[in-house]
């Protein structure tokens, strides 16, 4: 009987109570599909990604798409104003979303956004970090872990080199950035739990 969709990948958190669970689900799917396609297009542009097996490309994307979207959409979370911008462009306050059922995940998203922003990374750095997020050799179901690991190491080396070049006096940024990876895993797990709860009673 859930009546609200607090994920900003919707046009609005409010759901028409007259609509069937199926049509709500269809609309939600239509809303986030373009963002998922963009992640796939991004993955295709990572040098070496297309050389991985088809199975592993799908496995990495299945496991990592949410984490990539979290990094890409930190701009939706206004840490200062405590608002979240939905796909329609309308902003909703944290308090409003909490009253609609948003819980710990929302707070954790704000924490993550705040910490990532504090690193003051440029577009190229964020992009390379996002590639590192996606190409993770410890995702489940990979058939050629060694290939993924080799690509992951190449990307991490490139990220370290870029950060060192751009922030010569702040090498700790690279370490802090890598420490964001387990934070993203944690967000991913929380999000998965929400999805499971939602799908059970659409």
């Amino acid at each position: 009987n859930r009546m609200h969709l607090v994920c900003p990948m919707n046009t609005s958190p409010y759901v028409d109570p007259q609509k069937s669970g199926h049509s709500i689900w269809e609309e939600f799917s239509m809303s986030f599909t373009p963002a998922v396609r963009e992640v796939v297009e991004f993955a295709k542009r990572i040098p070496g990604f297309k050389d991985l097996s088809q199975h592993d490309q799908v496995s990495l994307l299945k496991a990592g798409t949410f984490e990539v979207l979290v990094v890409r959409f930190t701009s939706l979370f206004d840490v200062k104003e405590r608002t979240v911008t939905f796909l329609s462009g309308r902003k909703y306050s944290v308090d409003a979303l909490r009253s609609l059922g948003a819980g710990d995940l929302l707070n954790s998203m704000f924490d993550f956004t705040e910490k990532l922003r504090a690193l003051n990374l440029g577009e190229e750095e964020i992009s390379l970090f996002t590639a590192v997020v996606l190409v993770s050799a410890d995702r489940s179901g990979l058939e050629n872990v060694n290939s993924v690991e080799a690509l992951q190491e190449t990307l991490i080396r490139a990220l370290r080199s870029l950060i060192t070049k751009n922030h010569p006096n702040e090498i700790a940024i690279f370490t802090k950035l890598l420490l964001k990876l387990p934070d993203l895993r944690s967000l991913n797990n929380m999000h998965s739990e929400q999805l499971l709860a939602f799908k059970v009673q659409p």
């Binding site: 799917s29 986030f32 599909t33 998922v36 396609r37 796939v40 297009e41 295709k44 297309k50 088809q54 490309q57 799908v58 994307l61 299945k62 496991a63 798409t65 999000h191 998965s192 999805l195 499971l196 799908k199 059970v200």
Partner: peptide
């Protein structure tokens, strides 16, 4: 519904989006 990615139909979207790339690789 033990797999959230399957719940969302994510795999289907990903496979379709990758398809051009995959066809290219199969050639």
């Amino acid at each position: 519904f033990s797999d959230p990615a399957s719940n969302l139909g994510l795999e289907d979207i990903i496979r379709k989006a990758l398809m051009g790339n995959m066809e290219e690789k199969q050639e």
